[in-house]
Design a protein around this nucleic acid. Structure first.
Length: 229
DNA sequence: CCAGACGTTGTT
DNA sequence: GTCTGG
DNA sequence: CCAGACGTTGTT
DNA sequence: GTCTGG
């Protein structure tokens, strides 16, 4: 899945990579989390960064808060889910990232008084965090959907987005066996924002990224990933 | 008809 | 255990 | 995704 | 908003 990512490149690198004019203040973020307001590039305004809350709030929601998990959307089920199905044709976005994080469950070694490894360790589960990105260390775009919710009392508009997931590729599987974010290539990211494509053409873009173009690195902790200068 | 759900991941 | 906030 | 909270009454 | 279950 994708529940934490980073965007640690300088504003100039981001502008050049995605051909943007950035007027709003933008800060690199090594710890982008669900609920945060983060920059995306929408099909509606592809030359600018748009800041939205990560966790999709459907336009028909009665409450300002959603009670179930919508920070990811399964690519295979997009067209069926009430929260997402209307968005594929009208509200797509790119989520710029320098990498994403996955936590691998680690069963700690436990030995008995003779130094023999116990088959069923009773110690608590531990997790090892990994930073996953492109071998080139370049920025990339994850595929997303967005929506707008209007507060009926105040008229305030809350914009939000979700990151689409697909099956884990060979690089991610050992860390996190099931899911990973959809990462687009420089070619398919243009198509994802293209309003002339059919729904079928768009859905065909949502495939796992080439594993050989990616790398993973264990980190001592999420805050230990170096910030840009 | 109305009421209620609407989601993802990984698991004991 | 389960929900909320970030 | 993880980390942290998870409660009440009456008051210094 | 729109579908499902009762």
């Amino acid at each position: 899945m994708c529940g934490r990512y980073s965007e640690t490149k300088d504003i100039n690198v981001l502008e050049e990579r995605f051909d943007l004019q950035i007027d709003k203040k933008y800060k690199p973020n090594y710890n982008a989390s669900p609920g945060n307001v983060l920059p995306v590039i929408t099909n509606k305004d592809p030359k600018n960064l748009t800041f939205m809350q990560w966790t999709l709030l459907p336009h028909w929601s009665k409450e300002r808060k959603i009670k179930y998990s919508t920070f990811n959307a399964k690519a295979e089920e997009l067209t069926e889910k009430p929260s997402f199905r209307s968005l594929i044709t009208t509200k797509r976005c790119l989520v710029p990232a320098s990498g994403f994080y996955e936590w691998k469950d680690v069963t700690p070694e436990e030995t008995d008084m003779f130094g023999q490894r116990l088959p069923n360790p009773k110690t608590k589960k531990e997790k090892q965090i990994y930073f996953i990105n492109l071998k080139s260390d370049e920025l990339f775009a994850m595929a997303g959907l967005w929506d707008e919710w209007i507060d009926q009392k105040t008229g305030e508009i809350v914009s939000s987005f979700t990151i689409i997931t697909t099956t884990a590729n060979e690089l991610v599987k050992p860390i996190h066996p099931e899911r990973m974010p959809v990462i687009l290539t420089r070619e398919t990211e243009k198509l994802w924002l293209d309003n002339s494509l059919s729904k079928e053409q768009l859905l065909a873009l949502l495939t796992p990224y080439e594993a050989q173009e990616m790398k993973a690195k264990p980190l001592p902790g999420i805050v230990d990933f170096p910030n840009p200068k």
